[in-house]
Structures are given as structure tokens and as C-alpha cells.
Design a protein around this nucleic acid. Sequence first.
DNA 1: GTACTTGCAAAGATTTTGCTTCCAA
DNA 2: TTGGAAGCAAAATCTTTGCAAGTAC
Lengths: 126, 126
Amino acid sequence: MTHQRRLLVGIIQGADRHLDALDLWQKARQQDPTLNKVTVYRTLALLKKHGLVDELDLLHLQGGRHYYEARTTRDHIHLACLRCGRIQEFESSLFEKLKGQIERERRFRITVVRVEAGGYCDKCQD
Amino acid sequence: MTHQRRLLVGIIQGADRHLDALDLWQKARQQDPTLNKVTVYRTLALLKKHGLVDELDLLHLQGGRHYYEARTTRDHIHLACLRCGRIQEFESSLFEKLKGQIERERRFRITVVRVEAGGYCDKCQD
DNA sequence: GTACTTGCAAAGATTTTGCTTCCAA
DNA sequence: TTGGAAGCAAAATCTTTGCAAGTAC
């Protein structure tokens, strides 16, 4: 556990929105200007491999980057508004049931699941 | 409607697996060797914009590329085995109910939805 | 002390853009 | 004929790799 990793993990856990690698690097550099972008990518890969962060695309609303969030106890769905860009999160017991159905009917053991819906949020409908 | 577009659309619709831009280009070149890779990207962007193809990442099992499939009448879930790489598709009325719940409870009008689950398929469990 | 991590530079992979020429309608 | 599309080359974006030097334990 290096101080670079401690710093990056702290930023991800304290984030109030989804960060991509560049966002994370820029925030980290405010506290440690020598921290290299490559270290960000390597740390994200490590955290992802260990299941501590989830990787999202948010439907590539703004290019091909990936966003990261600390894994929480309960899976949730991301709703991305195609007009205003707002990202909402949504939890549902139906979603939990759906995962159970997949595990039972296909005998597929789920370790990571990503649900992203695009459309128009309540504020962006005519 | 150019012959390049006709060719690319035909390949996507006839595909028996998920193709990325390079796959598509290589298949297209067999029939029209002058077809440019850029045309593939531009055509995919157009089809995506018009909702005729869906873009997937399949959890980036092998790098950061995108995969495309012709949009079908019914949404489905992609199950990616982290060990053998097999991709399964799964349809479920629970999934339809879940979408309905989101639309009702959040008043969010869904136009595109992507569900990708990673884990271990029936053949890859101990 | 040693195995693992970092920084740096460079390369790699994927996708996009500018611009000219061409073609479908 | 004309506006949009394709081809080509080059650039932009995002991510990974090789290697020497540094650091946690």
C-alpha cells in the first residue's frame, strides 16, 4: 500500500460523481503533483480486478472514456439522460430478482453486472 | 443509400456473433476491397444514432473496443463468461418489468438499454 | 534486502477530423 | 446538379508497455 494508492482510493470513495481516469488524475495531482497518469491507470486496473471499483461507460455520452465508482453493497442501475446528461442511479428489488433468475436458469454465477439505460429524464420530456 | 452502406448493413444483420469495427471492416473488404475503415466508423455512428444498431462493450473482456448488433424487437441481456469468453444472450419478462418500473417511478423515457453481466458460465464452474 | 511500485517516455489501439473527389437521387 | 458520402492521410484520444530508479514492509 503506497501513498499514491491511498490517495487515489480516497478520491474515488469521496467522489460525488463518476470520475474518469483523467478526472481522477487531475484531482490527485492537486495533492501530489508528481503522481503520474500511468499510476492512475494501473491503480484502477488493480481495483477493478479486485472488485473494489466498477467500470462504467455511461453509454459513451461524451466519448469513449470509462468512469469509475467505488463498489457499493447493492448493485444499481445508471440512467443517463441523452439531453441534459444527468446521471441518476436506481435500485430495485426487481433487479435483484432478475439476477437471481439468470443465476438459476442459466447456472451463470454473476460477479459483476452493469446496467445503463439512456433516454429522457423527467425534466427533459416535452 | 450507397452501396457501401448496403454492404455494411447486410453484414451486421447477417452476423452470427458480435462484431467490432475492425471485424466489420475485414468482412466488408472481402466484397469491396476499396471500402475504407473510416466509412465503417461513420456508418456505425449513423446506424447507432438512428437506433438501428446497439453498441456493446461486453465488459471489455479483450480491450477497449465496441461491438455492434442489429437492434431486435426485444431487449436482451448479455452474459459474458470471464473464463471462456463465451457470450450468451438472455431475455426475460422480469427485465421488461424492470424497465417499466424505471419509466414509471422516475418518469424516465428509456430509448436504449444495455445490460452486461460478467461471471462464470455453467461450463466454467468448478 | 527484496519484491513490488512508480515515473517517464514511447508505443499501441481505437476512433475522429479535414479536405478533396465522387456518386446517388 | 447538387448535397451528402467516401476515401485518404493525418491527428486526436485513451490506454498500455518497457525499463530504470525508488519504496514499503
